[in-house]
Design a protein around this nucleic acid. Sequence first.
DNA 1: AATAAGAATGCGAACTCTTCTCATTTACGT
DNA 2: ACGTAAATGAGAAGAGTTCGCATTCTTATT
Lengths: 138, 138
Amino acid sequence: MDSSELKRAGLKATLPRLKILEFLENSDVRHMSAEDVYKALLESGEDVGLATVYRVLTQFEAAGLVVRHHFEGGQSVFELEQGKHHDHILCVKCGKVDEFMDETIEERQKKIAKEKGYAMTDHSLYIYGVCGECQKEE
Amino acid sequence: MDSSELKRAGLKATLPRLKILEFLENSDVRHMSAEDVYKALLESGEDVGLATVYRVLTQFEAAGLVVRHHFEGGQSVFELEQGKHHDHILCVKCGKVDEFMDETIEERQKKIAKEKGYAMTDHSLYIYGVCGECQKEE
DNA sequence: AATAAGAATGCGAACTCTTCTCATTTACGT
DNA sequence: ACGTAAATGAGAAGAGTTCGCATTCTTATT
Ligand SMILES: [Mn+2]
Ligand SMILES: [Mn+2]
Ligand SMILES: [Zn+2]
Ligand SMILES: [Zn+2]
């Protein structure tokens, strides 16, 4: 277990934090809800509380280790910070998530904020649609 | 009270529905939560239940009379349908909401969806920032 | 290695927003 | 005016998340 990342983030290297970070790093699914993380840890025999998962993910977010998204559906979705900003395109049928980054859109947003007199701090863009796989199934 | 809009939408012209529609049409605020609508009606002496406000707004959405948004903060926000699609820019200090439409962004989104193999159905774009007014206050 | 002090955890309660249930009321074609 | 189906209001319930607090861990210090 590598506690250096946590230490660097100013967080004590507790077992729940280590387990959650390790899970996020080794999972092949990039975007997960708190519940997803909680259930996965339970299934692998770890004894964590759901409240702790929420707390830890929020702390990770504050520390810049993870990013939180608000996909449609009500629950927060988290992913490991990758350094490079990106937006998401989601399949409304199967829930598949793809990522993209479009410099033109990014620029336009800045321009719009300026025109409207806003000091832009953030933005969120989600494209919804039916993915290739799901289009095949009639 | 003009019940024709409701009839046209295939909805019975009930008192709560008329009151809610009338309020949405006459309010100077365009974007409102169910709670906002509920409180406003109570204050003007109307006797509606919160559950009814939620139900009616959802029906209005299905009928295309209003559009629902998911601004940060957890609650749904509704606005009268204006015919023309637009996106939103919000002040993180005072909650001010401005609207915009950028043809270039719209086009780029379609292009991205196509590239990724998605049949695009919808999208949501929110820009967050500090509005002109709020920038003055240090 | 044992200790002490504060931080973190797990549990359930609580909270917010929204939907559901169901007895009662209302709309509207006849 | 009546009858029937649809809509309403009130409160319970549900989903997602946070809170409170007694207990357990971490980590710095002996
Ligand atoms: Mn992502
Ligand atoms: Mn709008
Ligand atoms: Zn799909
Ligand atoms: Zn402002």
